[in-house]
Structures are given as C-alpha cells and as structure tokens.
C-alpha cells in the first residue's frame, strides 16, 4: 500500500506485431483510491520511432521523462541524428543504474522500430535499469497482472497493425470501469486497479515516407480507424486515446471507450439523476 510504485497508480503495455509495435498507457493520476486527474499521460516520444512508457510514482514519471528529454536532445545535437530504440534502451538502463542506491520509482517500457531495418523493438526495465528484452509484449504498472492475463490470451505472433490495435484495445478496456459508474473510484468502490482512460500508439515501418504522402497516410489511417470509435469522447484527453504510429509517423489519435467527465459528454440525462447537472446553470 505504501510502496511508492503504487501510490499514484498507472499501467503501460507494449507489444510487437508484424513489422509494427504498439505502446499504450492509462491517463489516470491517483492518490491511492482517489482519482486526482484523468489527463496524465505516461507515454513520451523521443524520436521518429522511439517511445518510452513510464509507470510508478508520478513525480518520478515527470522527472525521468524530463531527464530523457534533456539527454536525447543533447544526443541529437551531438550526433546530428535521432536516437535508435536499442540505443535509447541502453541509455535508459545506464541512467537508471546511475541511481542504484536512490532509485527513481518507475518501471519504464520502451517501444520503437529500428531505423536501419524497420524491425520492431520492445523492452522493459526494473527501477534500477535491468533490461527485460521481449519478443512479444511488455507490461508494467499497478495493472500489470491484469495486462499479463490479457496479453497472454490475446497476443499472437505476426499480427498486422490493425489486429495489434484490436488487441491493444482489448488490453486497455480491461482497465476501464463500467460506463455508467460514477466518476471517482472512491465513490463507486470500483476496483482500484481499473484504470479509466488510456492512450495507445502503434508503429509500423515506412511504406511511403516521401514528400506529401505522409499526410495521405495519416488521413487514410485516421479514416480506417474511425470504425473502432465506440464511445462519446471527442477530445484528445478524453476516453481512451489510441495514437497509431505507422509509416514512422503518428497516424492520428483515435478515441475509444467512454468519456469520463460530464462536460465532455453530450447533454444527456443520467439514470439516477432526473435533473441534468447543466440545468443548474440555466
């Protein structure tokens, strides 16, 4: 209960598909059972095709993500190139081990595509930088057991990227509460480990990374994924965010699941309250 790793809560998952990777996290920031914010992203981008997921103590999520922003910016200026996922993973490892006797309370996950071959790369770490290389999936955070279960049952080798998208969606939905339950876990008694909202990124190597066609790809991707939209969320920070990374660029943000706060929901009556909260302001 008092472990720094579980004070704020949060989960992240990364998985490999055929020539693609996906990484996802929830967006909740909590204090034990209390939800403080539903817009606290835990995935950070450090290059064309490098993503870092950070779960654990929220303050360290910010500190560590800022630290790597600094380190990767310095790397880019020094070497005049983007950092490769494998190189970045080793940087994460050595940076965390530097704090061996006063660690950051985070469990990082790295996902990306190797720039030279386009091969998918994922790995996880413990808080002092021991790397866990994986060919299939990596989970981390307070819902890691649940994510392990979902991944073990849903993951299969060589998923094309839309399949991977589906599987990731399944993994994320397990973390989300029932649509009609109240908004704060402490009121509903919803299990603490159900994380309301998530964000996901999916990567695939470039097909047409050439002039002009990137935008086309983005448009196609967003349109193709429109079918997965299942909730009423309409803002980037609402519902479950799924950013699809393909063509070594972010395809677009797709929102699935339910919106969380009343003001992101279109005017509607809730079952237990005859008077809609909006009428207060009429």
């Amino acid at each position: 209960m008092s472990s720094p790793f579980s004070i704020n809560g949060g989960a992240a998952v990364a998985m490999v598909g055929k020539d693609c990777v996906a990484i996802a996290c929830d967006l909740r920031l909590g204090l034990q059972a209390l939800t403080v914010s539903n817009n606290f992203p835990k995935i950070f981008q450090y290059g064309d095709n490098v993503f870092l997921g950070l779960t654990g103590l929220a303050t360290d999520v910010s500190t560590v993500s800022d630290l790597f922003r600094y380190k990767v910016n310095m790397y880019r200026l020094r070497e005049e190139r983007h950092i490769a996922p494998k190189t970045f993973a080793n940087l994460v490892s050595s940076s965390l081990y530097e704090r061996r006797f006063g660690p950051y309370f985070v469990s990082p996950v790295v996902a990306g595509l190797e720039p030279k071959t386009g091969a998918p790369f994922i790995c996880g770490f413990d808080s002092i930088g021991c790397i866990d290389f994986a060919k299939d999936f990596i989970v981390s955070g307070t819902a890691s057991e649940q994510l392990f279960g979902m991944c073990e049952s849903l993951w299969e080798p060589d998923m094309v990227y839309l399949d991977a998208f589906f599987v990731m969606r399944g993994c994320l939905l397990i973390m989300m509460p029932e649509p009609r339950c109240a908004l704060r876990d402490h009121i509903t008694g919803a299990p603490q480990r159900r994380r309301p909202r998530c964000s996901l990124r999916l990567g695939r190597p470039r097909l047409h990374h050439r002039e002009g066609q990137g935008h086309k790809a983005v448009a196609e991707g967003a349109a193709g994924l429109e079918g997965f939209r299942s909730g009423g969320g309409h803002r980037g920070s609402e519902g479950t965010n799924i950013s699809v990374m393909a063509e070594r660029a972010i395809y677009g943000v797709v929102t699935i699941g339910h919106s969380e706060t009343p003001w992101s929901r279109p005017h509607q009556e809730t079952s237990h309250q005859a008077q809609a909260p909006w009428e207060l302001w009429q």
């Binding site: 817009n39 103590l57 303050t59």
Partner: peptide, 12 residues
Amino acid sequence: WLDYLAALAPVP
C-alpha cells in the same frame, strides 16, 4: 495541482 511529492497535474 501539485502534491508534496512534486507530482504535477493540470486540472479543471
């Protein structure tokens, strides 16, 4: 919103 652990969240 900032707590004593320096967790920072922009909130409505």
